[in-house]
Write a protein that binds this DNA or RNA. Structure first.
Lengths: 329, 329
DNA sequence: ATGAAAGCGCTAACAA
DNA sequence: TTGTTAGCGCTTTCAT
């Protein structure tokens, strides 16, 4: 097997206790200059690596954090949640245990059980799109933080994107670009995103003294196809700017607009939502949008779990969706 | 703290050895019906969960596998490597420790060190695009499998996509759709993908008895912009079909073609590469392409690490890139 | 300033 | 069939 603390102790001619002290740089430990040096030498010579598992066992508390995700796969940016969580965990000396459950309840329970058996400090439960969930029962008695989702009764700390602010921001950008007839192509699927962004849109208009015209609010499937199909109606409405529920809808709308000989942003300004990697920056013209803060969601989740971030509001913690301006308006 | 095996033993009126045996369902262990039942009852009553860390310590071998990735973030489908690795690891009772290093050497070394300290059985080192790498030195003395990358001298087992076969497949699809003047818009950046796909393109043409015309081979930046900009030249070449280095280039090409009043696939057939989630299936028309097998790469990496898959060839293990036919040809 | 020794929760001989 | 016991590698009093 690998070299242990005992090997080091023997090589340095000291006891394991001494080695332990110098390895961990214990504050209240008086170690002689000489002994300390010998230990370091022995460590280098033997290529000693502390066994984190043994350490955990003896200390009684691990440095693992679990992250169970319903879909690392399905959506590109879900990976950003992992990334943010991993970075932040790392920053505090923690390691991430990742499990992908594909929404399968059995897999979910297995994953949670396995994490608990590995003595995780707590579990981050995340979804790939912002929504309300039923918290899996094994999580009821575990230190849990919801990421990008929330419990019906807000019984668990949760970190979610601020949809209302996002919708408001998008609209404000269009407003400040001089537009007054601003259409909103919302999604057809009921969700916090749908309600929140609409509320934000309305609020921004109201604040700007622009009357809300319900004829300017459309609904479309939240994909390219939805955006493409709604283009005609949007054009007919006489809108000079369009805020799309997401970047994919915007991408479809681009095509629909182009088919009708309309130029962006000359004839119609377009604003997206999500700031989706492969799309937003590379449409022609590059799409202005509002970013979904996935990385930050993961990071904030870890901080909350570690008790470094007091849930200001009480339950749901809102993370801002910042605007990303490019050339579509 | 949580309930331990001792608590269970006491509650069931047996020894810890007995509990251990029933918990692990040890083959060579004769346990009385009665004792077994009492143990199970005690476990249920106390809500006992085995401590995986203690188990590892005592058994001497852990069930962790490390995955260090240079960018979970940058590209959407990198996440699929994690996903595949995680599923496969899980399937064999292993847990994935994930670390994202953003290509930073220091972070990389830290990550590897941490994994080693956690007694990982081995480490998967993966990159977000297929390329040759210098294997970080701490990995030299560790059970390592390269995923989506390979060492200069093929000194490490590696699992990579079969670029040549991919290029050949793409071309064959175009060929069997009846095309003879098939352009290839390759990338400008040197890479296994660039060389391999070109080789596959040539081989497919040769096999079909179609002379390779170098005037039909173009180069463009591997993004939407590159595809858009090259459209004119491609059209001028008189090609009736275009094989693009990747889906993003194809997306740009779509725009360029449309600007020139050309229809897809009526006037020009288009084939992509990557099968990139957000893009391929949602262009108009949906893009036919060749899939990069990221999930499979991650899964195969785990199998190889676990010694379940004997590297047939010796060093680099090739994973097939299957065609995904939609409506662009 | 340093060491001995008792655990942490579990496994695996070996006894009984 | 079941129990005893000695570790696994490390931390941590408590002596010295």
């Amino acid at each position: 097997m690998s070299t242990t603390m005992r090997d080091v102790a023997r090589a340095a001619g000291v006891s394991v206790a001494t080695v332990s002290h110098v390895v961990n740089d214990k504050p209240g430990a008086r170690i002689g200059e000489d002994a300390r040096r010998r230990v370091h030498e022995a460590i280098a010579a033997l290529g000693y690596r502390p066994n984190a598992l043994a350490k955990t066992l003896s200390e009684g508390s691990s440095r693992f954090i679990g992250l169970v995700a319903d879909a690392i796969a399905t959506t590109p940016f879900a990976g950003q949640i992992i990334h943010g969580a991993q970075d932040e965990a790392w920053r505090h000396g923690f390691v991430l245990l990742v499990a992908n459950t594909e929404g399968n309840a059995a897999a979910e329970n297995d994953a949670i059980a396995m994490m608990l058996e590995h003595q995780v400090r707590g579990i981050l439960y995340s979804t790939w799109y912002h929504r309300e969930i039923d918290v899996p029962s094994p999580l009821q008695h575990t230190e849990t933080v919801l990421v990008n989702c929330f419990a019906a009764d807000d019984a668990f700390p949760a970190v979610v994107p601020d949809e209302v602010q996002g919708g408001r921001t998008a609209t404000e950008e269009l407003l400040s670009a001089g537009h007054r007839r601003i259409a909103f192509v919302n999604t057809t699927s009921p969700s916090p995103a749908r309600d929140g962004r609409l509320a934000g849109y309305r609020a921004a208009l109201a604040d700007a003294g622009v009357p809300v015209d319900d004829a300017l609010v459309f609904e479309a499937a939240p994909e390219q196809e939805g955006g493409y199909d709604i283009a005609g109606a949007v054009v007919d409405s006489g809108a000079t700017a369009v805020f799309c529920h997401n970047d994919r809808v915007a991408m479809g709308l681009y095509d629909g607009l182009r088919d009708r000989g309309l130029r962006i942003p000359g004839d119609v300004a377009v604003m997206g939502f999500d700031n989706q990697d492969v799309i937003a920056a590379h449409l022609r013209p590059p799409l202005s949008t509002v970013a979904l803060p996935h990385y930050e969601l993961g990071a904030a989740g870890v901080r909350t779990l570690l008790g470094l971030e007091s849930p200001a509001t009480g339950a749901r913690q809102l993370v801002a969706c910042p605007p990303v301006l490019r050339e579509s308006l």
